[in-house]
């Protein structure tokens, strides 16, 4: 009994701080923000309960809400598949037995550790309308340049291209998955006459499907929460508030940040945060449900 109690004490002595931290700094703020989502709260005065008015305003009147939802969904729908394809393709290449493989892996991972702000400045120069690198190259080839970063059509494309630079993390996870595929299976498939595509389709893909699923889920969540890249890009373009032109790069996360810390509509921002939380929860649940059809676990 005494040993059991001592274990109990030590368990809480070690786990207690983490639990206390979780309760104080995660659970409590979340519950408080849920309460705030039903309040008018602009920081300088105490919160005032207004029922569902924040939610009604967002759905029916806010000029920025639906554009930000649209931008985020378009970005997610294009960026996630491209990012998965690019990182899987590179992982397959870097899995080949070539000389200095470790060095190549490091080289391809390096862009992922670039700070978003630096990336935004560099890409801002490349896509600048007046004297930008891309327009100069196009001019040499006899083509007219575009105002890439100032055009509502192209600005989101520029951000998608920028975001693909972060392929390193899913690539490393794919590499780990590829290394766990038993070599015998490839040998058996080869003996059975399977070509490269058949081996990839029927051996590699099913066996890395848990890793693929993980990357898809994480990629979708990250794309729905995207903030830093759009913020840094907007600042680099000299926009007084990032998200332009004409809300073309106003991501949901950016809109939420502006409502919270630009204009201090904490109630409205809390409502937005809970809507995002609910949507991500729902989408992840759907992802898990669908994964039963295509994800193969060894056991």
């Amino acid at each position: 009994m005494r040993a059991g109690r001592a274990k109990h004490v030590w368990f809480w002595a070690f786990v207690g701080p983490a639990v206390a931290g979780l309760l104080c700094f995660s659970v409590w703020p979340m519950l408080y923000s849920l309460w705030l989502s039903f309040c008018h709260y602009e920081v300088v005065a105490p919160p005032r309960f207004i029922g569902l008015r924040n939610y009604v305003y967002l759905f029916r009147h806010d000029a920025a809400f639906w554009p930000s939802v649209r931008v985020t969904l378009v970005f997610t729908a294009i960026q996630v598949p491209l990012s998965i394809l690019a990182s899987l393709a590179l992982a397959l290449l870097l899995h080949q037995p070539v000389r200095a493989r470790g060095w190549w892996r490091a080289v391809y991972f390096l862009p992922s550790i670039l700070p978003q702000a630096a990336l935004a400045v560099v890409f801002g120069y490349i896509f600048q309308a007046d004297g930008g690198l891309l327009n100069r190259v196009l001019g040499l080839a006899g083509f007219a340049g575009q105002a890439w970063s100032s055009s509502p059509t192209w600005a989101l494309v520029v951000l998608i291209v920028m975001s693909l630079w972060g392929f390193g993390y899913p690539m490393v996870i794919f590499l780990a998955g590829l290394q766990n595929v038993p070599r015998e299976l490839y040998e058996a498939a080869h003996i059975d006459g399977a070509g490269a595509w058949a081996r990839f389709r029927h051996v590699t893909l099913p066996l890395i499907s848990p890793v693929l699923f993980f990357n898809v889920v994480m990629g979708v969540i990250a794309a729905l929460k995207v903030f830093d890249i759009a913020y840094a890009f907007g600042m680099a373009q000299g926009q007084p508030i990032p998200g332009g032109p004409a809300r073309a790069t106003l991501f949901y996360g950016l809109n939420l940040y502006q409502q919270a810390f630009g204009y201090f509509h904490m109630g409205l921002a809390s409502a937005m945060a809970w809507l995002l939380f609910g949507f991500i929860l729902l989408l992840t649940a759907v992802n898990f449900r669908l994964s039963r059809r295509w994800v193969h676990y060894a056991d």
Partner: peptide
Amino acid sequence: LQIVQPEIDR
């Protein structure tokens, strides 16, 4: 900035 300017941008 948040409401009017996007329409001016367009």
